[in-house]
Computed example of a mutant assay.
Amino acid sequence: MEMSAEEAQARVDLAAAFRLVAHYGWDDLIFTHLSCRVPGPEHHFLINPYDMMFEEITASSLVKIDVEGNPVGPSDHPVNPAGFTIHSAIHMSREDAMAVMHLHTPHGQAVSAMEFGLLPHTQTAMIAKHTVAYHDYEGIATDLDERERLVQDLGEKHAMILRNHGTLAVGATVGECFLRLYFLERACQAQVMMLAAGHDRLNTPPQGVEQKVAGQTPPAMVAMAAGALAWPALLRKLDRMDPSFRN
Rank of each mutant, 00 (worst) to 15 (best):
V192F: 04
E42K: 11
T204E: 15
M224C: 12
L62A: 08
N164W: 10
D96W: 00
T167L: 15
H130D: 14
M194I: 14
G166V: 05
L14I: 10
R37L: 12
E55Y: 15
F116V: 14
S35L: 04
I86H: 07
P205Y: 10
F84M: 12
I57W: 00
A214M: 02
L181Q: 12
M193L: 14
E95L: 11
I30N: 13
A228P: 03
L34D: 00
M224Q: 13
L202S: 08
G155D: 08
P39E: 06
A113V: 05
F54N: 03
A228Q: 13
V132F: 02
A169S: 15
R19D: 13
H102G: 05
R163Q: 06
Y182N: 13
P106V: 03
Y137P: 03
Q207F: 09
D239H: 09
M194T: 15
G40R: 05
P120A: 11
P218K: 12
E148F: 10
L154Y: 00
A233P: 10
A110L: 00
W231K: 04
E210S: 13
Y24R: 15
T124A: 14
K212M: 14
N70C: 07
V151D: 01
R246F: 06
F45Y: 15
S4A: 06
F245V: 01
M52K: 14
I90C: 06
G166S: 04
D51Q: 12
A10C: 09
Q9W: 09
V111K: 00
L34C: 08
D153I: 01
D13K: 02
A169E: 01
F54P: 05
L103R: 05
R236Q: 15
R201I: 08
R163H: 03
E7Y: 09
V79D: 02
M1E: 12
W26K: 07
M92A: 15
